[in-house]
């Protein structure tokens, strides 16, 4: 077997350079952001994500 089988495929990324103005600012998300849990009850997709169809 060729060792090529171990090589990863090229990861496609979405080019959004033309979409936005201004500088790209990168941050380290805080615990409350990276574990954002914004809903209080109910769920339409299950999985404890508590997705509501807000109106």
């Amino acid at each position: 077997m060729s060792l090529a089988a171990f090589a990863p495929p090229r990861e496609l990324t979405l080019d959004v350079d033309d979409l936005f103005d201004g500088d790209l600012v990168l941050i380290v998300q805080g615990p409350e952001i990276r574990n954002d849990y914004k809903k209080t009850a109910g769920s339409s997709d299950g999985a404890k994500t508590y997705d509501t169809t807000a109106t």
Binding site: D18, L19, F20, D21, G22, L24, V25, L26, I27, V28, Q29
Partner: peptide, 9 residues
């Protein structure tokens, strides 16, 4: 790292 929101062109 994550990007902050930006304005659209």
């Amino acid at each position: 790292l994550h990007a902050e929101p930006r304005t659209l062109t």
